[in-house]
């Protein structure tokens, strides 16, 4: 059994898993950031220090195990907020030293990809993973376990960040993604034609800062009253523009690299339009789309533990001098002519 710990942003999470089962996956979201309309790093770090032991204890109790039953430790060591990451990593180092068991540092994005492998599930290799969250927008080719190649990524804002910022502009509560999704369901997605950045670039990179600015300009142009009246339509139009680029590029990537399986990862993978549209377009090209269960899409420790398990199996653990890396990138395999 593996204990996973995730503290890269504003969620303190701990999970106990085995290859076939998630025994517990406790996630504590920090309410304190709601008042600020976004995550305040110093407050996040302080909350992790207070919560880490209670959350781990809750995960152990729910799994009905003791720390002495744990055989390995996995912890997020990047990317993320440096102060927040340091709490999880150093707490886990303390456990590793005291229990004399291996610890492994996991890339947070890698964790999201491995949400697809929880509870004994798997995806045939190779597959394309669209990683979409508040901090990341990447298309990743996964050739085999722990073998990645980043095909494209955002050049500025992450798509989840665009959802949150647009929600803030529209006066919707934080986090804004689910709010926009809900309101968009009642709106006309063709009400405003927002730009689709880099859609026809022939590459797999994204850009979302222009879309956010376009929404801001439109809202200023419309005025407060008209904007309130058309709130659902604005949400639906923004969402359509944001999602269309994700879907088209992911499908294009799968076709270019002759990969048959596509999966989604990260918080935005819960977006209903993205799921629907990806399923429809993939079907048209006879591609298979796999969604991780909704509960494993947002930041959680089970996915970190699952990726960690793969490292422990193959490479063993890391040394105690493991550090955090706020801008850690996925480890990419050496490209060869077959790719």
């Amino acid at each position: 059994m593996i204990l996973g710990v995730e503290t890269s942003c504003d969620e303190t999470s701990a999970a106990v898993i085995s290859p076939r089962k998630v025994y517990s996956n406790i996630i504590s979201s920090q309410a304190v950031h709601v008042d600020f309309g976004g995550v305040v790093p110093e407050l996040a770090s302080r909350a992790h220090v207070r919560k880490i032991i209670p959350i781990v204890n809750e995960a152990l109790v729910e799994a009905n195990v003791r720390l002495s039953d744990i055989k390995g430790l996995a912890v997020t060591h990047g990317p993320g907020l440096v102060g927040a990451l340091l709490v999880g990593l150093n707490y886990v180092k303390g456990l590793a030293l005291a229990l004399n068991i291996p610890l492994v540092g996991v890339n947070h994005i890698e964790g999201h990809i491995y949400a697809n492998f929880l509870e004994g599930k798997s995806i045939p290799f190779p597959f394309i993973c669209l990683v979409v969250s508040g901090g990341h927008t990447q298309i990743v080719l996964v050739r085999d376990h722990l073998e990645y190649r980043i095909l494209g990524e955002t050049r500025d804002d992450a798509v989840g960040e665009a959802f949150d910022k647009v929600a803030k502009i529209l006066g919707l509560p934080y986090p804004g993604g689910p709010q926009i999704d809900q309101l968009a369901a009642q709106g006309n997605p063709d009400f405003i034609e927002f730009p689709r950045a880099l859609l026809k670039s022939g590459q797999f990179d994204f850009s979302y800062s222009g879309l956010k600015t376009a929404v801001l300009n439109k809202i200023n142009e419309m005025g407060e009253e008209q904007c309130r009246f058309s709130l659902n339509d604005i949400c639906a139009s923004f969402q359509k523009a944001a999602v269309e680029v994700l879907v088209k590029k992911t499908i294009e990537a799968a076709r270019s690299f002759q990969v048959r399986h596509i999966t989604l990862a990260g918080g935005v993978a819960a977006n209903s339009l993205l799921r629907r549209w990806m399923t429809e377009d993939a079907a048209a090209y006879h591609l298979n789309v796999i969604f991780p269960p909704q509960k494993y899409c947002t930041d959680n420790a089970a996915m970190i533990a699952r990726a960690g398990l793969e490292y422990l199996r193959r490479n063993g653990g890391n040394n105690l001098d493991l550090n955090v890396f706020p801008s850690l990138r996925l480890p990419e395999y050496q490209k060869d002519t077959n790719d």
Binding site: S45, R46, V49, I52, I53, V56, L67, V82, G83, L86, V87, G88, L89, N90, Y91, V92, K93, G94, L95, A96, L97, A98, L99
Partner: peptide, 16 residues
């Protein structure tokens, strides 16, 4: 940050 590193390590050691 320094204080939190000390506290986090100590919490892990003490917990286990």
């Amino acid at each position: 940050t320094g204080l939190r590193i000390g506290y986090s390590l100590a919490k892990g050691l003490a917990h286990a």
